[in-house]
Amino acid sequence: MPNMPRFNFHRPGTMEEALDLVSRFRASVKVMCGGTDLVPKMRAGVAVAENVVSLTRVPGLSTISYRDDDGLVIGGTARISDVARHPDVRRHYPALAYACDKMATVQIRNMGTVAGNLANAAPSADTAAPLLAYGASLVLVERGGRRQVPLEDFFTGPGLTVAEPMEIIEAIRVPAPPLRSGSAYLRVSARSKVDIAAVGVAAALNLDLEGRVIGVRIALAAVGPTPLRARQAEDMLMEQIPDHDLLARAGAACVRTAKPIDDVRASANFRRAMVQTLAQRVLARCGRLARGEDAQ
């Protein structure tokens, strides 16, 4: 295994200082929080930067807050384990809570952040699929100002995003779930309990009083260069009563959206089959939650 590449390490104590640093070093800078993604990547020679800026000492950035009118705000340095155990996340965003409970290991959840998981832009990022299903957006801040980017526009390829080197993820904003809605996330891998996902599917579903779908988002993980929205399946569900047959067809539509590859974790063929199975299960669970048939 090669040596860790050399870099300068910066530990700014304020957001202003942090923004100054990433702006000054934008030609070769990485923002770090827990280091759970960046350190192994640097060690493997996959990530190289002359400067690493750690955000862990920037005050006020780790807050998690929820308001019924405004939804959820996850601060840029909020740890995955803190998000997982936050009572409002557990109550209103079960798919996200599930992802944050199950991903990686206890230690990595204690170190890593949701923002980091997204910034890393792995196609298999566990928090990405649920957050896409919830219609989340990111608040990106730089020295000159801030902008809000919908999460579905954020990823551009494996490890690639629209964020500029001098931008920092200040927060993740997630709309409050509407009435009669349900959401879920499921993943599979060969080691059943503790693993990176070979395939993941998340969905959030909103029904009217008659049980017709009036809002739906489905997101697929680890079956394309980025986490994907399954729009064809979503369109198929809109205005319909989601019965078993429709869910099976929606699952098939998800498979058509997926662009899986063969890799060390699974074959493309297996991944397609799992998209079908998981999509059906996730959508069925969303429907039951939205109709109030399942407790969360």
Partner: peptide, 11 residues
């Protein structure tokens, strides 16, 4: 060990 999958406690 992420991709060489030996069973963990939960398995």
């Amino acid at each position: 060990f992420l991709d060489y999958k030996m069973p963990a406690a939960e398995d």
